Simulated scan of single mutants.
Amino acid sequence: MKIPDLPEPRSRHRLIAVLAVLVTVLVLAGIGVYGLITGPPTTNESGSDGSRPPGLVLTSPSHPVPTATQRLPTVRASDDPETFARNIATALFAWDTASGFMPLDYTSVILAVGDPSGAEQAGVASDIATYLPNREAWTELRHYATAQHLTIDEMFVPDVWDTAVDQAQPGQLAEGTIAYTIKGTRHRTGIWNGEDVTSEHPVAFTVFIVCAPTYDTCHLLRLSQLDNPLS
């Protein structure tokens, strides 16, 4: 039974220039990065006819929602790029509808480790939102105690990022800016007819971060569209 599925950046112009370089390189490589620049389209997990979200486990509406006992996940600070990217990924996929928290609460966890300049706050908030169920779907999923976590199978710096760095003009990329593509498995658990059920789904995405010497610790810049990573 399935369950539903860049010190502080020197200027905003620099980030725009970085994205411009990425666009040029990726177009030449035949890879779209619309999701990086504008953020992925809004996710709507409800059916077009207003029915339950696709793949949502069915259970008796009278089944009580578990009492909230969990805390929000955290993103551990790190000055190591790969470690930080892994921490971001793990926290991004860690949520529990029975925790008493809402999607915006989980979004705030990721925003807390975003670019301190605030230049990309709106953009990354939009990115994060597409990784989470919307409010309506969340409320529905709460009836089934749906929770999620991620296991990471593979992490690497995408080849296209190396190309972008090679072609960037001096000063276009803040030192310590890097991208990691992550491939893994999204696990969901829930309750169906009073029984525990689980589902698994492969996912892939890219995180864009900036670390030393720009910052003492790493910070998140943007996220790619889910399942449309750089390669």
Rank of each mutant, 00 (worst) to 15 (best):
P103F: 05
D80S: 08
P53L: 11
T97Y: 00
G47A: 15
G35N: 02
G35C: 05
T38H: 09
A68S: 07
R71P: 15
I88F: 09
P73N: 07
T74K: 03
P61N: 08
T38C: 11
V65S: 03
A112R: 05
H63Y: 13
T74Y: 05
L72P: 03
Q70M: 04
S46P: 01
T38F: 13
T74I: 10
L104S: 05
I110L: 15
I37M: 09
T43M: 09
T107E: 03
D79V: 00
T97A: 05
G114Y: 05
G39P: 12
L111G: 04
L92Y: 11
Y34G: 15
R71W: 12
D115A: 08
F84G: 01
R52L: 14
A89F: 00
D80E: 11
T74E: 04
L72A: 06
G123E: 08
D79Y: 03
D96N: 15
T83V: 14
L56E: 15
A89H: 00
L111I: 03
V124F: 01
T90F: 01
L58C: 03
S78I: 00
V124S: 00
T59K: 08
T67V: 12
V109T: 01
P41T: 08
A122G: 05
S51I: 05
I88G: 06
G118S: 12
D105L: 01
E82G: 06
I31Q: 12
P54W: 13
L104I: 12
D105F: 02
A85P: 06
T83I: 13
T90A: 02
V75A: 08
E45K: 02
L111C: 02
S99L: 06
A98D: 06
P53Y: 13
E82R: 11
Y106F: 03
P54E: 07
R71T: 11
H63N: 05
A122N: 08
S48W: 10
G30D: 01
T90G: 01
E45P: 02
H63D: 14
T59A: 15
L36Q: 11
L36G: 01
G55E: 01
T69L: 07
A112K: 06
I31C: 07
R76N: 11
P40D: 12
G114A: 13
D49F: 15
A94N: 12
P41A: 10
Y106R: 00
T90N: 03
Y34A: 14
W95Y: 13
S62H: 06
S60N: 03
P116R: 05
L92S: 11
A77R: 11
P64R: 08
A29I: 04
G114T: 09
R86V: 00
L56I: 09
P103L: 02
G39H: 12
V33I: 10
A94Y: 15
V33C: 09
G47S: 15
P116S: 07
V65G: 04
G39E: 12
R52H: 15
P64S: 06
D96H: 12
P53C: 14
F93W: 14
N44Q: 14
F84W: 04
F101W: 07
A85M: 05
A89S: 07
A119Y: 15
P116H: 10
R76T: 00
L92P: 01
Y34D: 15
E82L: 12
T74A: 08
A85D: 11
